[in-house]
Design a protein around this nucleic acid. Structure first.
Lengths: 131, 131
DNA sequence: CTTGACGTTGACGTAAACGTAAAGCATGAT
DNA sequence: ATCATGCTTTACGTTTACGTCAACGTCAAG
């Protein structure tokens, strides 16, 4: 932070990178790909709360294994203009696609967790037999 | 398939690739990394049910965004010898680590789905206001 | 026996997601 | 004034996960 609470808080690239546990190079890479677009004060980048929100979404997307390009289309969706009916219907369509994808992943994860639990049970059985 | 049901069924590389919707190059790549090791009949690869099980696990791991190297350590875990107590305890440890990872992903996905639902609700509101 | 259809091993190419110097501004501290 | 810090761009390097030839083996069909 920088401001002393007189107006909206802002951050430097080092601060956001630190806070999110990534390098400044990573943050700039996301900017190169158009995932974030911080304000410029002269030559320096100035990050606002909006940028941090986006960064959070990006990193969660990454934890879920989405490619950055796809992540961009998703978070752009959230900021898309939703004035006209056609726009809204398009957005709702996209939402459905995304959800289908997420549902598949949810099933995959639940299956994996279940299998892991089953495997653990067998291991504990084996361990008991050794006792 | 090849056998005519007199013994255990086997498959060629083209068959498994086709069935799992990947290329033969992909299948061989997984073999190069030691994720599967099909039998050799002369120079040809012969895939058994075991290999297909592994391939299934690999592809699910991929859908979940795990790197192939990590996937290998995981599925190797399932086939690891569990004779000695130390081995079993090591395996149980690994299981815990894996589960922590999967739990994080589960939360991420649930959050993402929830946010998507909330976003859809807002979009539908906007759409109603236009009616 | 030659032609395909499928299989094999290299080996190089490529896209994504950064890492890693190199070299130049900008600004406050000494 | 200069010196150290931190930020900037430019650009080439690296890893992962395959794609894409090239060049050759093999085996049943015509």
């Amino acid at each position: 932070m920088i401001d002393g609470m007189t107006s909206a808080p802002t951050w430097t690239i080092a601060e956001v990178a630190d806070e999110f546990g990534v390098t400044h190079r990573t943050v700039r890479h996301y900017e190169d790909l158009g995932l974030i677009s911080p304000e410029r004060r002269g030559t320096q980048r100035v990050y606002h709360r909006r940028d941090r929100t986006r960064l959070g979404l990006i990193l969660r997307g990454k934890r879920l294994g989405f490619p950055l390009e796809e992540i961009r289309t998703i978070i752009d969706l959230f900021d898309a203009p939703r004035g006209r009916r056609t726009q809204l219907e398009y957005v709702l369509d996209q939402i459905d696609e995304r959800r289908a994808d997420l549902d598949q992943r949810l099933r995959d994860i639940q299956d994996a967790i279940a299998e892991l639990g089953e495997f653990e049970r067998r291991c504990r059985e084996d361990l008991d037999k050794l006792a």
